[in-house]
Simulated assay, not measured.
Amino acid sequence: MALTDAGTLEIVFLGSGSCPTFPVSVTAGSASTVVVESAPAEKGDDAPAGSMACTADLSLTTSTVEVPAGVDIRKPFSVIVDGYDHRVVPR
């Protein structure tokens, strides 16, 4: 997890290479909290029925998200990703 100079967050997810995880919701929980919910991507609609299994490998996927309005990025703040709290300290 990193706060970029542009004021965005870079979040790294670990998961299946064929069903990578991406943020699906990014909200301000308060002036000092960002709440991120993620989910694995689904395979295309053209996949045969029952073929939604994801590979059992581990791959990193990085997503860049905007910090929601109302969160003061000039001060340390929390980013809660799927219930796990991460502290971000500006440089």
Rank of each mutant, 00 (worst) to 15 (best):
T55C: 08
P48Y: 10
S59R: 14
G44Y: 00
A41S: 10
K75N: 11
G17A: 12
D85G: 01
V67A: 09
D45G: 04
A47Y: 04
A6Y: 06
C19W: 01
D46A: 11
D72I: 02
A56E: 11
T62P: 08
T33P: 09
A69T: 05
P48L: 14
G70D: 03
A69C: 00
L14D: 07
L60T: 14
S63W: 01
G15N: 09
A6K: 13
S18G: 05
A39L: 04
D82H: 01
T64D: 02
R87Y: 04
T55E: 07
D85T: 12
T8I: 01
D57S: 07
V79H: 11
S25Y: 03
T33C: 10
A56C: 03
Y84P: 04
A56M: 14
E66H: 08
R87F: 02
G15K: 12
L60C: 08
L60R: 15
H86G: 02
D5I: 00
A39F: 01
S30C: 06
V12N: 12
D72N: 12
F13M: 11
F13N: 09
V36W: 02
L60Y: 08
A49I: 09
V36Q: 02
S18L: 04
A53T: 11
H86K: 12
A69P: 02
P23G: 07
S38N: 09
I80V: 15
K75E: 10
D82T: 01
D5A: 12
P90H: 00
V79Q: 08
C19F: 02
L60V: 05
G50F: 04
A28Y: 09
T61L: 05
C19R: 12
P90K: 01
R91Y: 10
G44N: 07
V65C: 01
R91D: 15
E10Q: 15
T64R: 13
S16F: 02
R87G: 03
P20S: 07
T55M: 10
P68C: 05
R91K: 15
V26W: 00
S25G: 05
V65F: 00
R91I: 06
S63Y: 00
V12M: 14
F77K: 04
K75Q: 15
P40T: 03
T27H: 04
A28K: 05
A53F: 12
F77Y: 07
A2L: 13
V81W: 03
P76T: 03
G44I: 00
S30N: 10
V89C: 10
M52Y: 06
V26R: 01
D46R: 12
V71D: 13
L58G: 05
D72W: 02
S78A: 12
A56V: 12
R91S: 13
S78D: 13
I11Q: 13
T27W: 00
A28C: 09
P68R: 02
H86S: 09
L60D: 12
G50S: 06
A49N: 10
V34S: 06
G29S: 14
V88T: 03
S16C: 04
V36N: 03
S32N: 13
K43Q: 03
V12K: 15
K43L: 06
S25M: 09
S25P: 01
V24C: 03
V36L: 02
Y84H: 14
D45L: 06
E66T: 15
I11W: 03
C54M: 05
G17I: 04
